[in-house]
């Protein structure tokens, strides 16, 4: 798709595009396509194959799991980023709450870039790995807790992790 300045700005503000130069972000825009979703439409359903990542450009979406609403997200939110790494099943359902404009990056096109040693794609993969590692740390803690082992409290560090997830 044609690169536009506002689109570049929106993408470069995302944590997954951290450290990408303007030219590299533009390469990402090249393999992206703009798409729309009508109010009430399902973007993807829980446990379906993850074939693309979405960035909400306009509108509001709802994330739900087994019918229970988990979150309402708006402009700038990234959905299904792990599917870029391939082989992931969708862990939740995403429905458009209003008329939405979205940016879609297909796993296939992204993987092709990755296979061609494209630096932008490698950097995005690195950023996604960092997100995953943060999430894994949280899950590990929960696992330890569920095994009945009380973990030493780290409230200040936990707070730091919350702030990282809010990405200021």
């Amino acid at each position: 798709m044609a690169t536009s300045a506002p689109m570049l700005k929106k993408l470069s503000a995302l944590p997954m595009c951290q450290g990408l130069s303007a030219a590299q972000t533009a390469e990402l825009v090249e393999i992206a396509e703009e798409t729309t979703a009508k109010k009430g439409a399902t973007l993807f359903a829980e446990e379906s194959a993850g074939d693309a990542l979405y960035v909400v450009l306009e509108g509001q979406v709802e994330v739900s799991k087994r019918g229970a609403s988990l979150a309402k997200l708006g402009e700038g939110s990234v959905l299904g980023e792990m599917s870029l790494l391939g082989g992931e099943m969708r862990s939740a359902t995403v429905t458009a709450l209003s008329e939405c404009k979205l940016l879609r990056i297909s796993t296939e096109r992204f993987q092709k870039r990755l296979a061609a040693d494209n630096l932008a794609a490698l950097k995005v993969t690195h950023n996604l790995a960092q997100v995953m590692s943060r999430r894994l740390a949280v899950i590990n803690d929960k696992l330890v807790e569920s095994l009945g082992k009380t973990k030493k409290k780290e409230e200040l560090a936990d707070f730091g992790r919350i702030l990282n997830n809010w990405s200021f």
């Binding site: 309402k72 997200l73 708006g74 700038g76 200040l156 560090a157 707070f159 730091g160 702030l163 200021f168």
Partner: peptide
């Protein structure tokens, strides 16, 4: 992005900045 009123968003930003410095 978080569908929050401007005031809440401003406090979120402020808590984020003060919080990061504190941590």
């Amino acid at each position: 992005s978080r569908q929050l009123p401007l005031r809440t968003a401003a406090y979120v930003l402020a808590i984020g900045r003060v919080g990061k410095a504190t941590v």
